[in-house]
């Protein structure tokens, strides 16, 4: 009799959940070097969520110029400031977008740039504070016309 008892059914179900959840946690499609770049930036440490505000359009009609504005909560004093912010795009041919370097003389950890997005994807920011703590934020942008000149 090949019937599955309750325990087996539970295990099977659990395995299924793990299988479907894992790739999502690792961010859908590791198609480019996004994960490696983040790892290199953080030194393998876990980045907490928060402190970062990303201002990106939900839908970008033209992937060639997508406005991206960043704000990181920080007093920006000599003792406590945002040192670096890494931007990666996980669906571009190359994940790297830019690395911004702030100093206490920046006054505010705010910046705006315009980026290229080849397709609908996540833009991920990782901020490194002067005390070494790490914060991250991500946002999905739907791209109507890709911006890598294909």
């Amino acid at each position: 009799m090949g019937a599955i008892n309750r325990r087996q059914a539970f295990l099977l179900g659990g395995g299924f959940v793990a299988l479907t959840v894992l790739p999502m946690a690792a961010n859908a499609e590791p198609s480019n070097d996004a994960a490696e770049l983040i790892k290199k930036f953080t030194g393998g440490k876990e980045a907490a969520k928060g402190k970062i505000t990303l201002d990106l359009p939900e839908i970008a009609e033209n992937g060639n110029t997508v406005p991206l504005a960043l704000t990181v909560e920080s007093p920006m004093t000599a003792e406590n400031y945002v040192k670096e912010v890494l931007f990666v795009a996980d669906g571009n041919p190359n994940a790297g977008v830019a690395t911004l370097m702030f100093t206490p003389m920046s006054g505010k950890a705010e910046a705006s740039i315009r980026i290229r997005l080849a397709q609908t994807q996540n833009v991920i920011a990782v901020a490194k504070m002067s005390d070494g703590s790490l914060f991250t934020e991500r946002k999905t942008v739907k791209v109507t016309i890709g911006g890598c000149g294909g």
Binding site: T65, N94, A98, T99, L100, M101, S106, A111, I113
Partner: peptide, 17 residues
């Protein structure tokens, strides 16, 4: 302020800080 830019930056790079 400074930044390292990759090819994913749009033409005529605009930077505000």
């Amino acid at each position: 302020f400074s930044c390292a830019l990759e090819p994913a930056i749009s033409a005529n790079p605009y930077i505000q800080f």
